Amino acid sequence: MTGFRLNMAPLKEPLGFIKLVEWLTAIFAFGSCGGYSGKNIVSIFCGEGRNETLNATFSYPFRLSHVPLVESNTTLCNRTVASTHLVGDSASSAEFFVGVAIVCFLYAMVALLVYLGYMHVYKNSDFGPMFDFGLTAAIAFLWLVCSSAWAKGLQNVKDATSTPGIISTLALCKTEDVTCEVSQFANMRTLNVSVVFGYLNLLVWAGNAWFVYKETRWHSQKYSAQPGSGRAQAPAPI
């Protein structure tokens, strides 16, 4: 029979329990990155004792080159400053990271549905475990790539919104009588957490690949081809 049979027992085994963990870690990964918005406050100290303040507000997907730092023809420190934007674009790495997390979230839900309702079909077929193993191994590799890319992209965001990054971006800050510094930084703790969850997902999916591999015929054929341990060898006929 191939009908749906609800069975919660797989959640007590590594195969099902790890898939539930993968579902949860995927939520934390894209949730901590995809919904982020932060603001840095830049203080400009003019030579005549006047101070100016700029706001650098940025959010996912971190296309910093589209974020205005100074609006067109703004007067700062008695100087007319042309329109200036932040420098950098980490959208590709951020969207790649969130995209992988969403795919993993959806696949983990489908896999849990199969484990809990169609495990009798899953174990009696060759295609199901082999497909599950191949996709699990591929996803583990994707986590390695997207987490590394996003870690580099996040560092680029931090550099572009830091005091040296603002000074190199805003020409006014390079004049002798003007000093610029970021007086208030956006809290990027959730972005740091997203990178941690990215590498945690890598470890979880790589570990899960072993338990899925044990369900494939490759693993069963490997052990069925080995002689039984501790079994006495039959004497050769005389």
Rank of each mutant, 00 (worst) to 15 (best):
T2D: 13
T2V: 11
L6P: 00
A9D: 14
G16A: 02
G16W: 00
K19M: 11
L20P: 03
L20Q: 10
E22A: 08
E22T: 02
L24G: 08
T25V: 15
T25I: 14
G31P: 08
C33Y: 00
Y36I: 01
N40W: 03
F45P: 03
G49R: 05
R50D: 13
N55H: 12
T57M: 05
F58T: 06
F58G: 03
L64F: 04
L64E: 08
S65Q: 13
V67D: 09
P68C: 05
L69F: 07
V70Q: 06
A82H: 13
S83A: 15
S83P: 02
T84D: 09
G88E: 01
D89F: 07
A91W: 03
S93T: 13
F97R: 01
G99C: 06
V103D: 04
V103H: 03
F105T: 06
Y107C: 07
Y107H: 13
Y107I: 13
M109A: 15
L113A: 13
G117H: 07
Y118D: 00
H120S: 10
V121R: 05
S125C: 11
A140P: 01
S147E: 04
A149M: 11
L154A: 03
Q155D: 14
V157M: 02
D159V: 08
G165W: 03
I166C: 08
S168I: 01
A171H: 05
L172G: 06
K174M: 09
T175V: 06
A186M: 02
A186E: 01
M188N: 13
V193S: 11
Y199F: 15
N201M: 08
L203F: 15
A206F: 14
F211P: 03
V212Q: 06
V212L: 04
W218L: 10
W218P: 00
W218M: 09
H219P: 05
Y223Q: 11
S229W: 10
G230A: 05
R231Y: 09
A232F: 07
A232Y: 09
A236M: 12
